[in-house]
Amino acid sequence: MFNYLEYIREKNFPHIWCAGCGDGIVLKAILRAIEKSGISLDETVMVSGIGCSSRTPGYVDMNTLHTTHGRAIPFATGVKHGNPKLNVIVITGDGDATAIGGNHLIHAARRNIDITVLLYNNYIYGMTGGQCSPTTPTGSRAATAPFGNIEPPFNTSGLAIAAGASFVARADVYNVANCEKMIAMALAKKGFSLVEILTPCPTAFGRRNKMASPVKLMEWLRDNAVPAAKWKKMTEEERRGRMETGVLMDVDKPEYTAEYEKLVTSLRTGK
């Protein structure tokens, strides 16, 4: 049995997440992935922004940094560039990372700095009460889209790939084994890595969209988050409205802090 107690701050429980929220499932997957990757808790820093997912660091026993809305990635960039020996994990959400923090996301990916971004996508602003986010599907209802969202959503993973991330994966909390595996791979990657994790929000999203029961949202994930192997065999028609999960991008390219170190060495030695 995996001993979660070794990784958590027990005194901070119970957590603040609603019944049926997927964030606790992600938390457990992260802890198992950390154990699997063998990184030391003393040398790992977890940085988050603002939102439900961004409360994750409070429960994890390491150096944790809960920052301002949208800015987890710049703070994390400072931590990593300040001490490149540290493993830096960013916990963020769809609103935090793709709306207010969108600029930081694309530039950290372009820079290819070695931080691991775990982006919980619940399609909604949960903490503020269910307003629509850049990933809210067209037609879905939200507190600020009472007649249905008329905007198209971001393909968040696609955005990270286009911006230059060296590792991008999508996972969901229905397929927990894959979620854990994707996080472990992202942690092991030298370079900017992002895992978009689809996670249900029954309180703010489900209730407004005829999926108030957590089971309904889980079933929705089961039916719409499609593993890569199955995805390949699907027709365009079958793919519509569904998401591919698994590794979407995995390349090796120069990492920012390593390149900076090379510059320092070359200036010091003249080579």
């Binding site: 940094l65 301002t68 990635i73 960039t77 400072g78 560039h81 300040g82 600029n103 530039h107």
Partner: peptide
């Protein structure tokens, strides 16, 4: 870069302020 100090040009002013706070927490 010549003395091992860390310089970074960030994507915007907000990011620059965030980055120096992050770096300061590592002791810099």
């Amino acid at each position: 870069p010549k003395i091992g100090g860390r310089f970074i040009q960030m994507e915007d002013e907000i990011a620059a302020m965030g980055a120096i706070i992050g770096a300061s927490l590592t002791g810099m």
